[in-house]
Write a protein that binds this DNA or RNA. Structure first.
Length: 304
DNA sequence: TCTAGCTTTCCTGATT
DNA sequence: CAATCAGGAAAGCTAG
């Protein structure tokens, strides 16, 4: 039952949410204009100024809708591909008017998460990190049975990241898309193994802080809608990319890690540690240029 | 409580 | 000269 965890959230929040769903605006009729209609992003103000959670969703700008989506990706450890940002080139007013059907039409199973989250936001008007944390805590404590945790993660619900490496974001998205055809995968396929024996994976690694830096970078690169001129591909097929706004990327990374003192200097040190692990390869003689190594997954075009 | 993994922070020196 | 790169060392944080 897919909606169970989210229903639990609503019940535990103690509110009988009156879902006054207005479907007079249909986002599917709306032509996205991300490529030219999106405001130029000054990270220092757009990302850290008047933030989306300080405003009722009804009054969100397009940028704040975008920030909300990004926050959901982050908190739910979803791959950026799980949410088609171009489908949400809309204001908060329009977002609030979307039905569950609209959300699932726009974002597939992830639409369920978006819909439930926006209903909560509409009810509460606003929330900050404390409420987000409390919501995650509710989910965590309600899902004490490991087998049920696995299943609800597989079904694309809020989770706390404990099983990140059993289902890295890319695999997770793939499995979500292709669950029905998983039985056709080769027996030694990683996805197949994970789906057959998710809790028996021997490759579970420690991931104390959620998404790794290189995954954060990768996800920015893979989602132009989330990448307002921060990083660009130099050679997509070779996995070579370049930082355009190094300090802005560092600030975003710091924001994600709740570390306001993050700088490109520090971020780049973490990047350099990836050389030894072959997640990144050196690109000699070129400043701000990096290349994904053989241990970096999910960046190749034919891999997604 | 200990440990491992992954940064984060600070630093010195080299290079662009 | 500032920005960036390289990498050592140690500390911090978190989950197992």
């Amino acid at each position: 039952m897919q909606i169970q965890p989210c229903i639990q959230i609503m019940i535990l929040e103690g509110n009988s949410i009156a879902m006054n769903i207005n479907s007079n605006s249909n986002p599917l009729n709306h032509q996205p204009s991300w490529t030219h209609g999106y405001p130029t992003c000054d990270v220092s103000t757009s990302f850290f100024g008047n933030q989306w959670h300080e405003v009722h969703p009804q009054f969100w700008t397009k940028l704040q809708v975008w920030e909300w989506l990004q926050h959901l990706l982050d908190t739910n450890q979803l791959d950026g591909n799980c949410i088609p940002f171009q489908e949400f080139d809309i204001t908060g007013e329009r977002l609030c008017g979307m039905t569950l059907q609209d959300f699932t039409h726009a974002a597939g199973t992830t639409g369920q998460i978006l819909y439930n989250n926006i209903q909560i936001l509409k009810w509460h008007g606003q929330y900050g990190s404390e409420m987000l944390q409390s919501l995650n805590l509710v989910v965590k404590t309600e899902q004490t049975d490991p087998s049920s945790m696995t299943s609800w993660k597989e079904e694309n619900f809020l989770y706390d990241g404990t099983y990140d490496d059993m289902f890295d974001s890319k695999t997770f998205c793939r499995s979500q898309i292709s669950t029905a055809s998983a039985e056709h995968l080769p027996a030694d396929s990683d996805v197949k193994k994970q789906q057959d024996h998710p809790q028996k994976s021997g490759n579970k690694k420690h991931n104390p802080r959620g998404t790794h830096l290189w995954e954060f970078i990768r996800d920015i690169l893979l989602n132009p809608e989330r990448n307002p001129g921060l990083i660009k591909w130099e050679d997509r097929s070779e996995g070579i990319f370049r930082f355009l706004k190094s300090e802005a990327v560092a600030q975003l990374w710091g924001k994600k890690k709740n570390n306001s003192s993050m700088t490109y200097e520090k971020l780049s040190r973490a990047m350099r540690y990836y050389y030894k692990r072959e997640i990144l390869e050196r690109v000699d003689g070129r400043r701000l240029v990096y290349k994904f190594g053989k241990n970096a997954r999910g960046w190749k075009e034919n891999e997604s």
